[in-house]
Write a protein that binds this DNA or RNA. Structure first.
Lengths: 234, 234
DNA sequence: AGAGCTAAGTGATGGAAATCACAAGGGTGG
DNA sequence: CCACCCTTGTGATTTCCATCACTTAGCTCT
């Protein structure tokens, strides 16, 4: 199911970009020494909602789906976590069970850090604690945006528009393009926008007909961000 | 509009309960020395969505409403923050503008800590950074619960039930009672559950008729938590 | 006390979207 | 290459709730 890697944090090309990975030499050494590198194949469930939290998972590369579900089977996808996220951090710090389920959307490289080691790391290296706080601040903001996206627009179309703009905005920052790779199904999009699968299908095809977006296979280009922004009412 | 107080953190009866207030002697002294105690009357807006973040506000006592709104005027109340919350912490750490508006629901005692002082505090006292991370973890969880509450139940009734159970749960922890003080208007409840004011009125009175809750003025007692839980479908 | 305001209660109605039901792609593996 | 499954596309139907439009209740202020 998974196997260890020998790669260490100092070699990681991302270690500059992510708060939790961009630590001083000694803290990074501690992190590397006290965590285990792993590779998760697509579909791996790292932890489930309600599980006790024994360790946090530093996401080095790949994408993970963070979701929760009601006992009736309704599902909510909170966000798609990318490199630099520290999964389970909030549960570890709050001393609670995991509030959500984390599942690999694509092959993911991670480092697993036991809770006790995390505590030790934060106590011994102030910057690690600051980094953890910053990482959590980002996750808080993401959760806030999700709540906002669901609550504020008055229609499913608005929520979808809002989500697309979110993604495009991030893509633009990183790669200066208005084209995103849509790796989620309509069903999953529905779970992110509190609507039904059929409505996602219909809304997207309406966006396409109206010339607001363009789709070619998995790549989706936003043609008229202003109009989408108008619709989103955020 | 507001005036300074002489009260210091060590005298604060809450300083044991809240992560950010329960710091070692020296850190608490630093915090006390570098922050200003204030008292905000009901209705004070501490900061607005989009404002630059210059300082964080440690909420000592009182309740604050954390909300966001769309330009169309639709409003979302994310949560009611109580003592121990550090308002603006996520914006300060993420180096972004405030993501939400904070408004005093009742007279609030606070300590205002400038961003630079916060950074200094976290760098010099590791436990302060850990405390900040823990505080953020709690706020993240609250935001998560909000998203969950809006997204998962399939009806407004479910969302309201979910909200009531949330509050009662917290009240039970603190005061071992199933009675809460409802200080929000139906309009505000609607903003917390993504529904309309009329629906809140109707749903609450149905809950009352069905014997699920009891209302006397501002105090609301949950009589049948199990049934509410059933309805909430969380 | 009455004016004036905000909050709460209630009925009627229209419409948007969930749900149901089924057809049509499109890829995978036997 | 056919069978099967997963995803997408689309129509028909129905239900629920937002919205509108009032009334009623409770407050504060003059």
């Amino acid at each position: 199911m998974s196997h260890c890697l020998s790669s260490t944090c100092p070699d990681c090309p991302m270690h500059q970009k992510h708060a939790f990975c961009n630590l001083p030499e000694d803290a990074r050494a501690f992190l590397a020494a006290n965590s285990v590198a792993m590779e998760y194949p697509r579909g791996t469930v790292v932890f489930r909602e309600g599980d006790r939290c024994d360790a946090v998972v530093v996401l080095c590369s790949g994408k993970m789906k963070i979701s929760a579900s009601s006992r009736e089977g309704r599902r909510m996808i909170l966000r798609i976590a990318g490199g630099g996220s520290v999964l389970g951090l909030s549960a570890a710090l709050a001393e609670k069970t995991h509030e959500a389920t984390a599942e690999a959307l694509e092959p993911c490289r991670v480092r697993v850090l036991r809770k006790r080691s995390l505590e030790e790391l934060m106590e011994q290296y102030p910057q690690a604690a600051v980094a953890a706080a910053k990482t959590l601040a980002d996750e808080y903001r993401a959760a806030f945006e999700e709540a906002r996206r669901i609550a504020l627009p008055e229609s499913p179309a608005g929520r979808l528009a809002c989500l697309l703009l979110d993604w495009v905005g991030r893509e633009r920052e990183d790669h200066r393009t208005d084209t995103i790779t849509m790796s989620l199904t309509h069903d999953e999009l529905a779970s992110m926008t509190a609507t039904s699968r059929e409505t996602v299908t219909r809304t997207l095809s309406r966006f396409r007909k109206d010339g607001l977006i363009q789709m070619r296979g998995v790549s989706l280009t936003v043609l008229q961000p202003q109009v989408l922004h108008q619709i989103s009412a955020c």
